[in-house]
């Protein structure tokens, strides 16, 4: 077994154990709902971690893709009489197509130009869902019908905990395999130097586009699950702040670390729930955390801890 395979199995195993243990420790419906939210955010953060960590590209408008998945899940049943699950899959597909279409011109850009272009894209999605009141319900949001699978009403936080947990496990498995594939190696190469990668015969544009599409699909999937869990969607899901939160999850957990994305998602989802009485300070704390992590702990929590652990073992 190669070390890569071993760490892959270790991560998947840890995650699986975690999924089983959480309901034993926190059996209340409310806690399970928060945990389901963590898994959902982790799915979106995973995709973004691949884009940011592996390929070194940034997206400051990723909530736009989250919103496409969420709104598709709400709008399909409302306007076309479609099944919510089918609508969600259509939304995930649509997000992938959009990413594919805009990906090429956008990913040609670098640095702040790329940041600003993705940011603009996210905000345009937000403006559309706010403004198209007749279709999206505008700022008031829109109800999502309950999911019914073969006559079985999918209801209750326990069920949603299980569903989102399994999807996260699958998403993690795919992400780990992508990281460990020839595509993953190509992406790491172009992260270090695009010119060197191109010289080595790597189709830089195609690989960047691929990971951008994967990140968009992950986000849309998370958005769809979010809509089904909450059974309600508002334009807030597409907001600029939501995009920044996603980026922060990746950054705090440790850019380029898949485990880090999950840790980051857990932190940023659970903390505001614990601190509802602390509501007013939420933005100040979020902003400060971003600055501190970027300035002093740029590698993030998981790689940071891993480094400490490795040093400790050597000593």
């Amino acid at each position: 077994m190669t070390p890569a395979t071993r760490s892959k199995i270790a991560l998947l195993g840890t995650l699986a154990v975690l999924l089983l243990v959480v309901p034993l420790l926190f059996p209340s419906a409310f806690h399970l709902r928060v945990a389901a939210l963590v898994w959902i955010n982790a799915i979106a953060a995973l995709g973004l971690a691949l884009l940011m960590g592996l390929a070194g590209q940034v997206s400051l408008g990723h909530a736009g893709f989250l919103a496409i998945g969420a709104y598709a899940t709400a709008l399909g049943p409302r306007h076309l009489g479609l099944d919510p699950l089918l609508s969600m899959l259509a939304g995930v597909f649509a997000a992938g197509i959009l990413a594919f279409l805009v990906g090429r011109p956008i990913l040609r850009l670098k640095g702040h130009y790329l940041a600003v272009a993705t940011l603009g894209l996210g905000i345009l999605v937000h403006l559309v869902v706010v403004s198209e009141v007749a279709i999206t319900g505008g700022p008031d949001g829109i109800q999502v019908p309950r999911l019914v699978l073969f006559g079985w009403r999918v209801v209750g936080p326990e069920i949603w905990y299980a569903i989102t947990g399994v999807v996260l496990l699958l998403a993690t498995w795919i992400a780990l395999n992508l990281e460990d594939s020839s595509t993953g190696r190509a992406l790491r190469a172009l992260h270090d130097s695009e010119i060197a990668a191109a010289v080595a015969g790597i189709d830089v544009a195609r690989h960047k586009l691929l990971v951008f599409v994967v990140a968009a699909v992950y986000a849309a999937l998370a958005g769809g699950l979010l809509a089904l869990l909450n059974r309600f969607v508002t334009p807030d899901v597409a907001s600029f702040l939501r995009s920044i939160e996603l980026v922060t999850m990746v950054v705090i957990g440790g850019m380029g670390s898949i485990a880090g994305a999950i840790v980051g998602a857990a932190l940023l989802t659970v903390l505001p729930q614990l601190l509802t009485f602390f509501h007013d300070y939420e933005h100040a704390v979020l902003g400060l955390a971003i600055v501190l992590f970027m300035v002093f702990l740029r590698q993030g929590i998981v790689p940071g801890l891993a480094g400490l652990f490795a040093r400790g073992r050597r000593a």
């Binding site: 008031d140 909450n230 059974r231 309600f232 969607v233 508002t234 807030d236 899901v237 509802t276 509501h279």
Partner: peptide, 10 residues
Amino acid sequence: DDGGDPSAAR
């Protein structure tokens, strides 16, 4: 406090 946001209210 839902801050006026319907999804927070939900």
